[in-house]
Amino acid sequence: MAAYLIILRFPEDILLEILTNLDSRSLLICRTTCRRLNRIVSDSVLLQYRIELAACGMVDGRQTLDVAEKLRRLRLYNAAWNEVEWTGHTALPHLANYQPPSMASAGALVFHSATTSHNRSLTALQHVSSKLRCIHEQHIVFPVDVGFNSLIDPSQDLLAYAPRPDP
């Protein structure tokens, strides 16, 4: 077919512009079509980041880092999980008077204080820092009236707070 335009003869930036619109699965299939597309996809930091991000089930956090840095951190993160080695230790001395963490969600640990004062106990929310995931350490404490149950889900920004039923 003489009239059939051959897309591979197009400049690389046109091909990249097309590929940028594809999801990770279509990009992987595109790599299997021919050498040139395979190379363009694997040489593109942006496309490679999209593929590797989807492969570990994550979504882009819209951090203001450039894509190359995001890809570098993603690979370090994956390597850390593959090796399951401690990458850091954080001491939490300010939580000495709390019970063991009652739950963990979205990178936060929830602690309840062991003692009460003025009819109130304390609930602490501890975000442990992670360089790879751009999370800064954060510590939030708030009082809860004795006789109330509280439940926190940081992934939903949700605090449920309900009176404990009388025994």
Binding site: L8, I18, T20, N21, L22, S26, I29, T33, C34, L37
Partner: peptide, 27 residues
């Protein structure tokens, strides 16, 4: 245009993509 071309190949198999893009298997 790039978006429209991507829409044509999204979700297609390797063979279908080759057909649409006019690409030969050179592996």
């Amino acid at each position: 245009c790039a978006r429209a071309i991507a829409d044509m190949i999204r979700g297609k198999t390797t063979e279908e993509m080759r057909e649409i893009l006019g690409v030969e298997n050179d592996f």
